[in-house]
Design a protein around this nucleic acid. Sequence first.
DNA 1: TAGATTGTTAATCGATTAACAATC
DNA 2: TAGATTGTTAATCGATTAACAATC
Lengths: 208, 208
Amino acid sequence: MGNKAAIPDIVIGRLPIYLRALNRMIQENREYTSSHELGERLGISSAQIRKDLSHFGEFGKQGTGYNVRYLYEQLRQILKVDREWLMAVVGIGDLGRAIAHYRGFQARGFRVAALFDADPAKVGERIGELTVLPMSQLVEEITRQNIRIAMIAVPASEAQSVADKLVEAGVQALLNYAPITITVPPGVRVQYIDPAAHLQHMTYYLTP
Amino acid sequence: MGNKAAIPDIVIGRLPIYLRALNRMIQENREYTSSHELGERLGISSAQIRKDLSHFGEFGKQGTGYNVRYLYEQLRQILKVDREWLMAVVGIGDLGRAIAHYRGFQARGFRVAALFDADPAKVGERIGELTVLPMSQLVEEITRQNIRIAMIAVPASEAQSVADKLVEAGVQALLNYAPITITVPPGVRVQYIDPAAHLQHMTYYLTP
DNA sequence: TAGATTGTTAATCGATTAACAATC
DNA sequence: TAGATTGTTAATCGATTAACAATC
């Protein structure tokens, strides 16, 4: 209580992993779990899990551990995914299309609510319940729907200017699929999805 | 020299980011760069970049910094991406298809060389130069092509058993797109791509 | 040369782990 | 009760940063 110190970002980054594991346990009808069991599944020490959770409150009971559903709901609240966030996708290539079709966002707090592409040939195309809009409507549509999150799925050469435009429209969180580091003003968050970077991380350890 | 101590994994994980930035600089025809400039672009301290690189050798010159192309080639060698790694993709849904079509792997050391799906309706389908194969051919085909890396793009419920099968076939590096932590034997590496987890990491900081 | 920048050492900072009293 | 497991403290471990001699 009276927790003034900011919680380390690295801890926040682990919460979605805990949430993912808890979701799995709910599907398996597990009622209780322990820091030891969770750690076992995730390859994390039980001490770390208890320490991480202790930043936010006391969620367990000595002797019995954590009620799976309760902890799940608490983490959803902490991460603010006990609601539905609207997202924009910019760049409707193969990847943007896959993102737009992906069924997995809904259960985790997200919904794709707008699609944009610079290519006139793609504008007007219907994908699910959405129509691809031109870049010229980006600011207007994002403002209208009060969209706060966007996914960038354009070529690397376009990513920075698209990011600038999204920030101008009021977007505060960017998930960038383009293989390039982008610069944003303070207060805007960026996360990166770069499969090739992950692959290169692993090849270091592979013997030729 | 005589560097016996293992290099921290967190350092290895940053090398692909440096490589990405250097690649960009090559495109921009920049001949030299400095730890300061690189750090500026990436939001990393110059000291960290110098420290990271110092694990592998001396790549710069006092006063002038680093030759962009030289450092790029050195990092490619260190990460072993100065060659072409063959990859298998398991699960040919929207995402698997996007991966199979993605043009960006080639330049970074990778090529998709085999596609698998459990759905008989998808088996036999041609995607680019490849034909989707049934799971029953997985071990044989991966062995035949000596594939060491695989990408898992199946539903979460299937991911663990697919991983087991890939490991059985001799795959040593897995990039898992399914939102679930998988368990693999020692010596096999796993990296995760979970966009929803990244999004949840960011919503923590968003004000409602 | 003077200015710039490296590679490296030592100091600092922060994250992880071990241990255990509290208690279900 | 006895056994199990939490939440927390202190100790350990590792990563980042600051500083600077070396030198291009």
